[in-house]
Nucleic acid binder design. Structure first.
Length: 303
RNA sequence: GGUGCCAUAGCUCAGUUGGUAGAGCAAUGGACUGAAAAUCCAUGUGUCCCUGGUUCAAAUCCAGGUGGCACCA
């Protein structure tokens, strides 16, 4: 098995895109995005989609391919991305996967259990029931539907409980019965490259990048999707803060500061997730040569 | 120059009739199975501006000083 997926991961703003493009050019290959927000074509500036030149110089997949109005989830991503990866391997090797959405990356590397997709009717029904009856009632409902999951569930996290209840409600089976937690072995090798740098430097980069986004017209971009603010796809850093400004509940300056702060928080959360993954080999953003050396030490593409 | 108000955690501020201090935000750590840039959880020692006084005991009362704000000249 020589097919290799090079996974470039790291916190937001660290410079993953630049490294991925260099790697893709070096190996004459494509980039598959693992970014849950760059998927949406209406969101370009605020999600830091690479500039047009970069997108033209290297083929990118899963960038700007969906609308904010489309329903999308990790499972769909897994199905589509794995199919594409297998197809691309017929003509090229290695491939580069890059992005900051932790769950999306893990889904490609390890798979995710088959859980039936909840219909909008059931979802709305359960959400409405929750809004009328509250968290405690939701916990009790889960306890009666799936006591096993109740034992391990994060009982304050309504989103998790809601999903478990939805699945039970729809299928008549317990949520636990779908949670096999089986790791899928992929028909390709995976090399994980983590990019990180000193926290202060990273934060400074993030702050500057937000200023640059504002200069590039983020306010206008956010205003154009403002009417659809309740969509899940717009519960996104860079947009939700500007919606508050449009509402008149804060100044533009305050909104921009909040975008910076929330981006930093996001970066921290990403690092928390990645920290437990011992397969990741970490590098600084300038260490392109070292990265290529490391990859070469793991696999030889010219045999 | 005079008078009044204020000074407590990185920031904004609570702090009852004196018993050596605690919220929100920030920051940091953690969780994570179809909303994941989402959602949830945990972590609070700081010359209570300085000096002196009263008191068994002062962030708290008194005097002076320093800095800020407001008003009057």
């Amino acid at each position: 098995m020589n097919n290799t997926l090079i996974v470039v991961l790291g916190p937001t703003g660290v410079g993953k895109s630049a490294i991925s493009i260099h790697l893709a050019q070096y190996y004459s290959t494509d980039i598959i995005s693992a970014d849950s927000r760059q998927l949406f074509r209406e969101l370009a500036i605020g999600t830091a989609v690479p500039p047009t030149e970069d997108l033209q110089s290297v083929p990118h997949h899963f960038i700007q391919t969906r609308s904010i109005h489309d329903y999308y989830n990790v499972s769909e991503y897994e199905t589509e991305a794995i199919a594409l990866i297998n197809q691309l391997f017929l003509t090229r090797n290695p491939l580069v996967l890059t992005g900051g959405s932790m769950l999306y990356i893990d889904t490609i590397c390890k798979g995710i259990d088959d859980i039936p997709t909840v219909t909008p009717e059931i979802r709305n029904e359960v959400i409405q029931w929750y809004q009328e009856n509250g968290l405690e009632a939701l916990q009790q409902r889960l306890l009666s539907l799936d006591p096993e999951y109740y034992q391990i569930a994060d009982l304050n996290n309504a989103k998790r409980l809601l999903h478990a209840v939805e699945v039970c409600q729809m299928t008549g089976k317990t949520f636990t019965s779908f949670r096999k937690n089986t790791i899928r072995t992929r028909p390709f090798r995976i090399i994980k490259i983590g990019i990180n740098q000193q926290r202060e430097v990273l934060y400074e980069r993030i702050n500057k990048r937000v200023d640059a986004m504002i200069e590039s017209g983020l306010v206008e971009e956010a205003r154009s999707v403002y009417p659809y603010r309740d969509l899940n796809s717009l519960n996104t850093v860079g947009y939700k803060e500007l919606f508050a400004y449009f509402d008149g509940s804060c100044t533009l300056e305050e909104a921009v500061d909040l975008i910076k702060r929330n981006s930093r928080k996001y970066a921290r959360k990403q690092l928390t997730w990645f920290r437990r993954d011992t397969e990741i080999q970490w590098f600084e953003p300038e260490q392109l040569e070292e990265i290529i050396t490391y990859i070469s030490s793991k696999v030889n593409f010219h045999q």
